[in-house]
Amino acid sequence: MTEQQVAIVTGGSRGIGRATALKLAAAGTAVVVGYAGGAAEATKVVEEITAAGGRAIAAGADVGDEKAVAAMFDLAEKTYGGVDVIVNSAGIMPLVNIADLDIEVLDRIYHTNIRGTFIVLREAARRLRDGGSIVTVSTSQVGLRFPSYGPYVASKSATEAVTLILARELRGRNITVNCVAPGPTATELFLNGKDQETIDHLAKLPPLERLAQAGDIADIIGFLAGPEGHWVNGQVVRANGGII
Rank of each mutant, 00 (worst) to 15 (best):
Gly234Thr: 07
Gln213Leu: 09
Gly150Glu: 05
Tyr152Pro: 00
Asp195Ser: 14
His230Thr: 07
Ala124Asn: 03
Val137Lys: 05
Ser157Arg: 11
Ser133Cys: 08
Thr185Ser: 02
Lys156Ser: 00
Ser138Asn: 08
Arg126Ala: 15
Leu211Glu: 02
Asn178Val: 07
Lys204Glu: 14
Arg238Thr: 04
Val180Lys: 02
Pro151Ser: 12
Arg210His: 10
Val162Ile: 15
Ala125His: 12
Val137Leu: 15
Ser148His: 05
Leu166Val: 15
Gln141Arg: 01
Gly234Arg: 10
Thr117His: 03
Ser155Met: 08
Leu144Ser: 03
Ala225Val: 02
Ala167Arg: 07
Leu128Cys: 04
Pro182Asn: 08
Gly183Asn: 03
Phe118Cys: 06
Ala225Cys: 11
Arg210Glu: 13
Ile175Lys: 01
Thr139Trp: 04
Ile199Pro: 02
Ile221Asn: 00
Lys194Tyr: 15
Thr117Gly: 00
Ala158Gly: 13
Trp231Gly: 03
Ala158Tyr: 05
Ala167Lys: 07
Gly172Pro: 05
Val142Ile: 13
Gly229Asn: 09
Thr159Lys: 04
Ser138Tyr: 08
Arg238Lys: 08
Leu166Ala: 13
Arg173Cys: 15
Ser157Leu: 11
Ser140Gln: 04
Leu191Arg: 07
Gln141Val: 02
Glu169His: 09
Glu188Arg: 04
Thr176Lys: 05
Val135Tyr: 01
Pro207Asn: 15
Val120Cys: 14
Pro206Glu: 05
Trp231Thr: 06
Val236Lys: 11
Val162His: 03
Val137Ile: 15
Gly132Tyr: 00
Gln141Ser: 07
Arg145His: 10
Ala225Glu: 00
Asp216Met: 10
Thr117Lys: 02
Ile220Ser: 01
Ala167Glu: 12
Leu208Gly: 02
Thr159Tyr: 01
Val232Cys: 13
Pro184Tyr: 05
Lys156Asp: 01
Arg168Glu: 15
Lys156Glu: 02
Ala218Cys: 08
Arg122His: 09
Leu202His: 09
Gly193Ile: 13
